[in-house]
Structures are given as structure tokens and as C-alpha cells.
Design a protein around this nucleic acid. Structure first.
Length: 212
DNA sequence: CCTCAGATATGCT
DNA sequence: GCATATCTGAGGG
């Protein structure tokens, strides 16, 4: 399945059971992609490795709206081996390699055949003690040891990857255009980036960490 | 805050 | 073959 994936950073060790976290049901992932991106801020992403759990609390996400979105890999219905997981049912993972050295992880949304997804841009370690550890999509994947080997994995099949609803109160959400999509024409300005305004782990320049 | 190099899988011609 | 990319770290102002 994922024979040679790097291990997660030990600082991410946590106990999902102790926190009484509950998983999102399949129906959640099949909903509106933009709403899902917003709802995932505050959720916990978790990976089991060597029978231990490692996790992070998401603090920054972006919605990618498929066929109509020039910033999405599935723009105009593009369907290649790399992008194939985006066409899966909601609740799968899409991981790709970019800029010759980084991986980025997305949660696939909507139903099979509709290729939309939510990019996981930043998160906090369980103790919120290392704000740079998962600050940015490349760092997020590096800290959790996520590579292309995980692309296409189901988050709801009882395997090593899971996503849990946040237990506590709703974070205060900020909204801005997405980062790194200047090539995408008018889609460049769509307000599809969501982040926790109170988190130190949000990526990007400060002006993009306070907006409204 | 901004600019730029780095390294290469991927997709298109 | 060739241009590009859902990024990051270093260096300058």
C-alpha cells in the first residue's frame, strides 16, 4: 500500500480516542467543496504508523472547484493518472509532487466523477508548540510523511489515514484568495482560502493571516 | 516585506 | 523535447 513512506514527526504523537474525536461521515465529503474547506479548519488529520497515532489540527485550507476552476488540476476536465484520485468519491486523499521537491495533500470532495478537492495548507501539532512544523502544504506533508504513495487512499475505510471533526468551539475563520495560483486568470481572485485567525501556524505573509 | 534559486515529475506539442 | 508547477528557504531592503 505505502511500503516506503517516511515516518511522521514524533512531535505529532497523540491519542484520538482520548480526545473522543469523531470521524466525518461519507455524506459530509460529498457536499459543497467550499463549505467543506471552511468546515475543515479546526478538524484533525491523523495517520497511524507502527500502531501509533500521529495527528495535526488543520488551520488553513483551500477549495479547488474542478472543471470551471483554472487553478485546479482537473480544470476543463483534465484526467490523467496523477489527477485520477480527484475523480474518486468524496473522502479520498489526493497527493501530488510539485516544484521538484514538495508534496501537497488534498481531501477529495463531491461524488465520484466530479473532480473537486480541498488543499490542506497548514496545521498545528497536538501541543501547538511548533508553529512552523506544519505551516504550508509542503511542510504539512513532510511532517506527516505523506507522499504520492498515499494518493487515492480512502479516509473512511478504517485504514491508516483519518479525519476527525473538531471537538471544541469553532475557530474564527478568515477568508482570502488562494496562494500560488497567480496563473489562474480570474480564478486567481476567488475567495477560497480559509484559515484560523487565531493560529500562529497559518502560512503566508502576515497580511494574509488577518484578513476578513 | 519582496525576489530568486532550487529540482524534477508531469503534461502538452 | 520543453515549459511549468496548489512550494520553501535564503538573502536583501
Amino acid at each position: 500500500m505505502n511500503p516506503v513512506s517516511p515516518p511522521p514527526d514524533p512531535r505529532l504523537r497523540f491519542e484520538p480516542d482520548a480526545l473522543r474525536l469523531r470521524e466525518f461521515p461519507r455524506a459530509f465529503y460529498r457536499g459543497d467543496t467550499t463549505e467543506i474547506a471552511r468546515a475543515l479548519v479546526g478538524a484533525w488529520f491523523a495517520r497511524r504508523f507502527d500502531s501509533q497515532w500521529y495527528g495535526a489540527r488543520l488551520v488553513e485550507t483551500e477549495a479547488y472547484l474542478g472543471i470551471q476552476d483554472a487553478a485546479a488540476h482537473s480544470y476543463r476536465g483534465r484526467r490523467t493518472p496523477r489527477v485520477e484520485p480527484m475523480y474518486m468519491d468524496g473522502g479520498h486523499l489526493y497527493v501530488y509532487f510539485v516544484y521538484g521537491m514538495h508534496h501537497c495533500a488534498n481531501i477529495v470532495s463531491r461524488v465520484a466523477g466530479i473532480a473537486e478537492a480541498v488543499l490542506l495548507r497548514a496545521a498545528e501539532d497536538p501541543a501547538a508548540a511548533h508553529p512552523k512544523l506544519l505551516s504550508g502544504p509542503g511542510r504539512f506533508c513532510a511532517a506527516l510523511g505523506l507522499t504520492k504513495a498515499f494518493s487515492g487512499e480512502d479516509l473512511l475505510d478504517g485504514g491508516d489515514l483519518r479525519l476527525f471533526r473538531s471537538g471544541g468551539s469553532r475557530p474564527q475563520i478568515g477568508v482570502t484568495p488562494r496562494i500560488g495560483v497567480d496563473y489562474a486568470g480570474e480564478a486567481r481572485d476567488w475567495p477560497l482560502r480559509f484559515f484560523d485567525r487565531d493560529s500562529a501556524a497559518v502560512s503566508g505573509p502576515a497580511r494574509l493571516r488577518r484578513k476578513e
